[in-house]
Design a protein around this nucleic acid. Structure first.
Length: 260
DNA sequence: AAGACGATCAACCGCAGAAGG
DNA sequence: ACCTTCTGCGGTTGATCGTCT
C-alpha cells in the first residue's frame, strides 16, 4: 500500500518518556483535551509521534488509572471475559475500570496464562488441556472450523471471529474452570446458526452508571449484562453467572440487528 | 559479589477500519 | 465510489528489575 509513516521518524524521540515529556503531555491534554493525536506533539512541544503520545496518555498518564495488583475478582473476570471475547483486550479493559488494554494484555501473558495452565486449562480455548488437544486433533481431521480459538498471531482482522468465539457453547457449558468438559465430545457447529452480532452489543463501561444507576439501555440486554460484568466488586460467582447469562441472552436475541 | 536467568511492563510496530474529502 | 488520513487495536520487543546460583 505504501502508507505514509505516522510521523517523521527522524525528528522524534523514542523509548522511555522523561518526566518533562510527561508533564508537557499532561499539561497539554488538561488544557486542550484529548483528540487529534497527530498534531498534538507539535502543539504540545513534544518530539514524539502522535501514536506514542496517545499510548503514553492512555496507558500511563490518565488520572483514572488504578495501577497496582489485580484482585482475585479481576483475575476471574478477565478469564471469563477472555473466554467470552477472545483477545479483544480493549473490550475486556472496558469492563475493568481503571485498567488499560495494554495492562490486561501483559497481565494475561505473564500471570493468567500460567494460572490457567496450572489449572489444566488451555488459555486460548479455555478447555481442559486434554480435551483441547483432542479437539484440536479432531479439527485436523475435519473441515476447518472457524469457531476454534485462533492461535496467537492468527487471531487477527476477522470481525466475525469475535462473534464466532463468543458463540462457543463451551463458553457457557461450564460455570467454573474446575468443571472439565472433557467428557463432552466437541459439539457440532449448530450454534453457528446463532448470529450474535456480539461485537456491537457490548457498550463501553460506564463507571458512573455502575454505582448510581443500574442501566439506562434497557433495550439492550446483552449490553446491560456485559456492563454488569464490569463491576469490579462483583464476586467470582456472580461474574460467572453474568457471563453465562450474557451468552444465554445473546443466544436468544442473537439474530436481532442493531440499529446503526 | 557477580553473573545468569526469568519475570514484568512500557513502548513500538504494523495493520484494519473509520472518517473525511 | 474511491482515495487518503487518522485512530485504535493487538502482537511483539526490549529495557529493567528481582531472584537464584
Amino acid at each position: 500500500m505504501g502508507r505514509s509513516p505516522c510521523c517523521e521518524k527522524a525528528h522524534t524521540n523514542k523509548g522511555a518518556w522523561t518526566k518533562e515529556e510527561d508533564q508537557r503531555l499532561i499539561a497539554y491534554i488538561k488544557a486542550n483535551g484529548e483528540g487529534c493525536w497527530r498534531s498534538l506533539p507539535k502543539a504540545a512541544g513534544l518530539l514524539r509521534c502522535g501514536k506514542s503520545c496517545r499510548l503514553r496518555w492512555i496507558n500511563y498518564l490518565r488520572t483514572d488509572l488504578k495501577r497496582g495488583n489485580f484482585t482475585e475478582e479481576e483475575d476471574e473476570l478477565i478469564i471469563k471475559l477472555h473466554e467470552l471475547l477472545g483477545n479483544k483486550w480493549s473490550l475486556i479493559a472496558g469492563r475493568l475500570p481503571g485498567r488499560t488494554d495494554n495492562e490486561i494484555k501483559n497481565y494475561w501473558n505473564t500471570h493468567i496464562k500460567r494460572k490457567l495452565l496450572a489449572r489444566g486449562v488451555d488459555p486460548q480455548t479455555h478447555r481442559p488441556l486434554n480435551a483441547a488437544a483432542d479437539h484440536h486433533q479432531q479439527q485436523q481431521l475435519q473441515a476447518p472450523r472457524r469457531f476454534a480459538a485462533a492461535p496467537a498471531g492468527h487471531h487477527h482482522h476477522h470481525p466475525d471471529h469475535f462473534a464466532v468465539l463468543s458463540n462457543s457453547p463451551e463458553a457457557c457449558s461450564h460455570s467454573s474452570d474446575d468443571e472439565p468438559s472433557s467428557a463432552t465430545p466437541p459439539p457440532p457447529p449448530r450454534h453457528l446458526g446463532i448470529d450474535l452480532n456480539l461485537s456491537i452489543s457490548l457498550a463501553p463501561y460506564q463507571p458512573q452508571d455502575q454505582t448510581s444507576e443500574p442501566m439506562k439501555q434497557e433495550d439492550d440486554e446483552a449490553s446491560a449484562t456485559a456492563n454488569g460484568a464490569g463491576n469490579a466488586a462483583m464476586t467470582t460467582t456472580a461474574t460467572t453467572a453474568a457471563v453465562c447469562l450474557c451468552l444465554n441472552r445473546l443466544g436468544l436475541h442473537g439474530g436481532e440487528p442493531r440499529p446503526e
